[in-house]
């Protein structure tokens, strides 16, 4: 296969969410001496942008976006050891989870998939997570952004608690905090001192870009 065909294969495998095919194409790229950066920019990035566009238009759905993100991650694992300098570096590290007492996680999962396809490293801490666990994990992993999700009204105080614990532990300035989900609002984000509120899954991506000073 020539370079064009390999990049096309990378594009198609990510678009179709085919991890095995994506890994194979990434290896072929390396074998053909295509630089990892070119493989990403010429094959995978256009595919993932296409996935994001189709998802936004309602032409692709959550499971397809998740499998596309998985395929991209699988291919990146093959390419990563061959990056030079900061080639292929992630935009930033985001820890995200649903707060204590709330196990609704579809909104969180959509945000995770969108952040991944937009180049962020995402740590999914899960659902029904104790406030202290959010803080401890964020500190341990040195994440730039903490994303708090919740569908229930009773989730709101837990978001306030997490910000308070970050303050009490003296690490508030090391992490940006964003909130989202049914009962949240910009007013509530302002009230509890969060750094941002995402009304939609897409706005969570924009917020992360904005907070980390990245052009979207």
């Amino acid at each position: 296969m020539n370079e064009k065909e390999i990049l096309q294969q990378l594009y198609e495998s990510v678009l179709q969410g085919d991890s095995a095919k994506a890994v194979e194409a990434a290896q072929q790229a390396l074998d053909a001496k295509i630089s990892p950066l070119k493989a990403i920019e010429g094959g995978m990035t256009p595919a993932i942008q296409e996935v994001g566009d189709r998802f936004g238009k309602g032409e692709m759905f959550l499971p397809e976006m998740v499998t596309s993100a998985d395929a991209m991650e699988a291919a990146l694992e093959i390419l990563e050891p061959f990056f030079e300098g900061d080639e292929g570096a992630k935009k930033g590290k985001v820890l995200i989870g649903t707060v204590k007492g709330d196990i609704h996680d579809i909104g969180k999962n959509i945000v995770i998939a969108l952040l991944k396809v937009n180049g962020f490293e995402v740590i999914d801490i899960g659902r029904d997570i104790a406030s202290t666990d959010f803080v401890d994990k964020a500190v341990d992993l040195g994440v730039e952004v903490i994303g708090l999700s919740g569908l229930l009204t009773t989730s709101l105080p837990m978001m306030r608690d997490i910000i308070q614990i970050l303050d009490d532990d003296g690490v508030r300035d090391q992490h940006k905090v964003i909130i989202g989900g049914g009962p949240t609002s910009q007013e509530y984000a302002d009230e509890i001192g969060a750094d941002g509120y995402g009304e939609t899954a897409y706005s969570a991506v924009q917020l992360c870009n904005q907070l980390l000073g990245i052009a979207s």
Binding site: T153, L156, G182, P183, T184, S185, E187, Y188, E191
Partner: peptide, 16 residues
């Protein structure tokens, strides 16, 4: 062929 409700409602929170 259904029954109506519960409702009317809407998820609200914070100051809403």
């Amino acid at each position: 062929g259904q029954h109506t409700g519960p409702g009317p409602s809407g998820i609200t929170g914070g100051d809403d």
